[in-house]
Design a protein around this nucleic acid. Sequence first.
DNA 1: CCTCATTTGTACGTATGTATG
DNA 2: CCATACATACGTACAAATGAG
Lengths: 223, 223
Amino acid sequence: MTRRNGVILQQRIVALIHDRQLASGAALPTEPMLMDLLGASRNSVREAIQALQALGIVEIRHGHGTFVGTASLDVLSPSLAFRVRSRTPSGIGGLHDLVEVRELIEVGLIGQVAGTLSEARLAALDALVARMATDLSADRAFHALLYESCGNELVLQLIGLFWNVYHEVEASLDPPEDRIADVVANHQRIVDALRGGDAAEARAAMSAHFTDVKARVARAQTP
Amino acid sequence: MTRRNGVILQQRIVALIHDRQLASGAALPTEPMLMDLLGASRNSVREAIQALQALGIVEIRHGHGTFVGTASLDVLSPSLAFRVRSRTPSGIGGLHDLVEVRELIEVGLIGQVAGTLSEARLAALDALVARMATDLSADRAFHALLYESCGNELVLQLIGLFWNVYHEVEASLDPPEDRIADVVANHQRIVDALRGGDAAEARAAMSAHFTDVKARVARAQTP
DNA sequence: CCTCATTTGTACGTATGTATG
DNA sequence: CCATACATACGTACAAATGAG
């Protein structure tokens, strides 16, 4: 095996997972076994496994073994964050695009869930709005709870991923620029529209929220 | 360095890229240099670099060196494909969610670009529709060209990524089930709506297209 | 609590393929 | 064609973590 491997080894391991129908959480063969199965040295096997771990395809536990992962979109956070930052020296250009994608998805989704939310869920959203002024995580929970009923796990993880990357990059911008009152008002407007069952108004409220976010990004300066 | 490393090494390399303000395409220190800078062995350095390459953060060129990458979303394709497949044994459940996300984004976007396309671009779309019956790549080019004018590179790459993953997973389903005539008709309807400047009709046409795709997924069987 | 086997993590040495000048 | 610098691959040895007894 003195010819170029690298990515090929990763694909062979993925193929092995599929062939053996290993579900998430199942144990992969140990490194010595993989060396034998793939006919490669331990270094090569480990490099391939490390790459697969970065993609969330496998999960390595020291002293225990290597297991099939869930490929949650969370693991893509470093890649997306790096991408957004490297768009411009300041990262602002990339942030704007990121917010637009969030807006696109959430404005579309809120139109789907409008009118389907129980009063209990609306009350929970109210509570999150109240906490939002002092607790940033309430904002994340708000957007997650909004769409939980749509039954699409992928879109939920996408929204969570984008939220994480946005706030990670946004934290390195200069002025905190407290407009929390506006943020809270925007979210309250969204809940009110949902309680009224007005899909168009809910879309408009969500759109207004992201317009404010985009304006905040446009004004931001880097330290 | 005999204490627990792993992911930490990757983060330190990313931090090094940021500290030195290395832009895409810039050369990273060589492996021996990184061994010295990070105080780690060649194996550990290489494993970290391989992981970063899997995320598109660095790019390795054999015999030349390691360079800062662009973190294009394309590299996330293996992870997303794995995720979609592992949702259900057949991968159908994951495919449905994936198509819904595509629908969400594209229906929203087409409302934005409606009325902004030049006649030259509309003619190019017509040409792609004509090729679509015999050339699958024309479909990909169609959706890419549709939104090219929106000026959001991230959303363009996202649409391309989802297209790739969908067709990669869809290829492993059973019946090719030629409905190409319907597909072509759907796309022609989209172009016609755009030429008429009717945003609502364009959204409806795009939505109808994805409704057909979802129906095709629902009927699919695994070999 | 300790011991022990298993498994992953780190390190070093060496040889070879590959691109550039 | 040669020389240099770099990545690729293999083999071996030891450290560290986990779980079973």
